[in-house]
Amino acid sequence: MTATAPVVAAAAPKMDPLHHFHVTKYLDFDYLGIDVAISNSVLWMWIAAGLVLLFFHLAFKNPRIVPGRLQSLGEAGYLFIRGIVDDIVGEKGRPFFPYIFTLFFFILFCNLAGLIPGSFTVTSQLIVTATFSLTIVGFSFAYGFYLHGTHYFKFFVPTGVPVLLMPLMIPIEIISFLARPVSLAVRLFANMTAGHTMLAVMFLYVVTLPWWGAWVPFGFTVIFTGVEIFIGFIQAYIFTILTCVYINDSIHMH
């Protein structure tokens, strides 16, 4: 592979579009044997969380009956999540509203903060999205077990299927349940990673192409950044919706 590399490519910067996903530890901490280092990932988590708080602080600094622009936006966000929870889970989902609200805005601001040049996209880390998705699915399983007891295992038995097919259907149901955290985590992580990789590749073309050709990938990056904002929103929305669906499944079964 390396032997036949063209001269031009060798002169150009080595292409590594995945470089900005590297986690760099700034400060190494160890607490009772647990690694609690501060890395760029952790830093941007905090920045995203800080931006969420800043946004809502500015929006509701002096709340008025007739809202201003930012307050309208904040209220729209609140009512958006409220609508999702009420639509999917219903009355019994009210206690989970703060969690889902936090989840949505944390993920949304992580996605959006990742678009700032030179920043780090926390949600492009599989381990972060996996932590969230495993926690959510694990919680929904435990909550369903808590609400319904052993009756909850009926969840894996599909209704209206002949008994003969049960040995086939039950493993499928179990596998689809186990696939939940994986698909949830991978969807968000892959979307973020793919989008940012694409942007990185395009930026690489911007710097490697001569000036008369560079504007093509540059224009593409400008448009694609807009698409990424949209994707960041959609993915946060999907993540939230699926969380609600899983919680609803454990409350109402199906």
């Binding site: 647990i34 609690v36 708080l53 609200f101 936090t102 944390f106 381990i127 972060v128």
Partner: peptide
């Protein structure tokens, strides 16, 4: 490891503050 710890911690701190 540190990302697991900090993402959970950040989430709950943000949850508390919100």
């Amino acid at each position: 490891q540190h990302q697991i710890v900090w993402s959970i911690a950040s989430f709950f701190v943000l949850l508390y503050l919100l």
